[in-house]
């Protein structure tokens, strides 16, 4: 029988935590790019892309991440594709992230006063120029805090990918807990691992929020 020292447990968990971090960053970066595309569709002048983006966002916000992963995992295999767990995890989290970020960013774009659109239009700026020079810079300022805040949700979301067999922090934890018969210790360490990844982001998001939204004094 193999025995585990505390160091063995920690070493394996740290490997898992590294994979969680990599998956989170990948999902967040790819999700941001896809989210930007969805955002432009959502605020488009034309009806069809708007309707598509709305449906996309509602579908991902109204269903559990776990089932999105299951559908992807089993849905793609219907087409004869053999989907490895890591690919399904990345793809699923990317789609999930893009839907939420698009909706967060839409709120930020809409928070830019209408007068800014009108003023820039009266200066004969094209749609692209309006976006590039007037709307997006102002929307981005508002968007930073909630975007960092959402990154916490992405990191926590990666835990669900353990269920489809991706060996990140939670899955590593389960396997070690089963091998060492020390579930309490192992899951406390796993929780601390997530806390170490998420808390700095939460803290930073809160600080940004205070910086950009000085509390209104009534």
């Amino acid at each position: 029988m193999m025995t585990f020292s505390l160091w063995d447990i920690l070493r394996n968990l740290l490997n898992g935590a590294a994979l969680t971090a990599v998956l989170s960053i990948t999902a967040f970066v790819l999700g941001s790019l896809a989210g930007l595309a969805i955002l432009f569709a959502r605020i488009s002048k034309y009806r069809a892309p708007r309707a598509f983006a709305k449906l996309y966002i509602e579908a991902f916000q109204g269903t559990p991440l776990l089932l999105q992963l299951f559908m992807l995992f089993f849905g793609l295999s219907l087409f004869g594709l053999d989907v490895p767990a890591w690919l399904a995890a990345c793809l699923g989290l990317m789609l999930f992230t893009s839907a939420f970020l698009a909706e967060i960013w839409r709120g930020c774009v809409e928070s830019v006063p209408r007068g800014q659109w009108e003023a820039s239009a009266s200066l004969a700026l094209t749609y692209g120029e309006q976006m590039r020079h007037v709307i997006l810079p102002q929307a981005m300022r508002v968007a930073i805090a909630p975007t960092v805040g959402f990154a916490v949700q992405v990191v926590k979301g990666t835990a669900v990918t353990s269920i489809i067999g991706f060996a990140e922090l939670t899955k590593t934890g389960s396997m070690i807990a089963n091998a060492t018969y020390q579930p309490f210790l192992v899951y406390v360490l796993v929780a601390l691992g997530y806390f170490a990844l998420c808390y700095p982001l939460s803290w930073y998001a809160q600080r940004l929020e205070r910086k950009f939204h000085a509390p209104r004094t009534n």
Binding site: V152, K156, I163, G173, V188, A191, F195, C198
Partner: peptide
Amino acid sequence: ELFRNTPFLVQLFLIFFGLPS
């Protein structure tokens, strides 16, 4: 802070598998 910065799945595992010890 602890509950908002850890995944629900891990909280569940800690309660179900961890607390018995």
